[in-house]
Structure formats: C-alpha cells, structure tokens
Amino acid sequence: MMPSPVSTAVAVKPSATRKRLGSWLIFSAVSLYFLIPLGATFYWSLRGQKDVLGFEAYRKLFADTNFLPAFSESIVNAVATIFISLLIVVPTAYWVTLRLPKLRPVVEFITLLPFVIPGIVLVFGIIRLYSRPPLLLTATYDSSRILLICVYVALSFPYMFRSVDNGLRAIDVRTLTEAAQSLGANWTTILFKVIFPNLRVALLSGALLTFAIVIGELTIALYMAQHTLGPYMANLTRSKVYEPSAMAIVAFAITWAAMGIIDFVGRGSSKHLQMADTE
C-alpha cells in the first residue's frame, strides 16, 4: 500500500553494507567465470592473421566453401521446424485449454518426454526404427533431412507448448473466444483475428527458443549424417586453428540475439499487461 522500500530501515546498519560488499564479490567472481571464456575466444578470433589483430578468422570462416551451405541448411531446418511445430502446437494448446481439458495431463506428460529421452538415445532409436525396411526413411540425404526436421519438431514441443500455453493463460482465452462468438465470429476468424494476435509474444518466444536450440544442434544431425551447422562446427574444431573461435563467437551472437529478442518483447508485453491491470 505505501511505497515503503525495505532497504531504508536496513540501510543504516553496517551489516547491510557488509552484505552488499559480499554480493559484489560473489557477483564479480562468477561474472569472471562466465566472461573469461568469451573474452579468450574473442581474443583468439582476432588473431587469424600473424602478428596483427583483425577479423581475418571471420573472413576465412565465411569464405569456407562448406560454411554457408551448412549455415543456410540449418537455418532452413530451423525455420521449417518452427513452422511445423507452431502449426501443431497452437491448435493442440488451444483445444486442450478450451475443448479437451481432460487431455491436458497427457499432453503435459508428452511434453516432458524430450527431457526424459536424451538426444543420443533418441537418435539411436530413430536410426534403429527408420533405417531399415519396412520404414526405410534414411535412404537418401533428403529423406533423412525430412526425418531430422520431424525429430526437431517433436523435440520443440516442450518449449512451444509451454510458451503458447502461458500465452493462452495470460489472455483468458475462454472469455475472449466466447466474446468473439457472441459477436458472431466463426472459428477461423476467432483463431486468426483474436487468438493469434494476442499470442504474438508467446509464439515469438517459443519460435526463437526453438531456433536457438535447432540452429547448432549436433547430436542428432551428426548420427543422421546431415551436413548442418552442428557437425560442421565439430569438424571445424578438429581441422582449423583460428576459425573455430570466430565460429564460437558467431554462435554466441546468434544465441544472444534470439534470447535478447525474447527478453525484449516479453518485457514489453508484461508492461502492457500490467498497465491494463492497474486500469
């Protein structure tokens, strides 16, 4: 009720100063642990040319004939995964919230499976199941690639479902749907004009999280013999000296961008909701 910062009463005590000092110490030490590897990698990535600091390693990386194909293939895979995953998860989450609440425990259980089945075990099973007749899906590179995307889609379910489900809860989808129905809207109108626009932030964070995970995925792509970014990077670390550092920095930047956007849009929307709350 009153704006009464807790710290005011405590701030005068010497123990509070000690506490803050301890906090700074802990924070700095752990920050060092996290920043040093990044700093060291960045430093190495600037040493691609002998005796000069510069971006030679990055230039070489991008000039590598295998890099761009692997990168673009991973991007296409990621985008396809996101697209299919959204098409599957949004109706599922919507139906489970609105029409089939009894299925919720089952769906939630299934979304836990990717955490229970390690990637290496999953790809083991996939190969055993689909690489021999009658289900020979790994015969060609392209069919393997489709299979890989399908596996990625299944693996993205936990992130997608949770994002979409949180989004649906935040907007009270039942009331919105009923309001739209009472105004005469049909199901497609409701889905595309009411539900989707209100879920933008949730869909975007689910999509970006999936992107961050799929783009550099190694384990499954490796054993399905796919020439995507993950296997490419693993190979690079063994064959080149400076390029892997540039590659790691690029990968870090991509992850950072994805998470940064999630944070940014998430914060914007929560502010929006809070304002709506106080009004």
């Binding site: 009720m1 009153m2 009464s4 005011t8 009463a9 005068v12």
Partner: peptide, 18 residues
C-alpha cells in the same frame, strides 16, 4: 484512504520503518 500514512505509522511502531 490508501496512501494516508496509517500503515507506515503502524510499521514504525513495529520497527519495520525508522
């Protein structure tokens, strides 16, 4: 009404505010 200082006064008696 809220914001009138009644809770702050009470919290001073309790010692949560000086």
């Amino acid at each position: 009404p809220s914001g009138c200082g009644k809770t702050t006064t009470l919290r001073m008696v309790a010692g949560f505010e000086i």
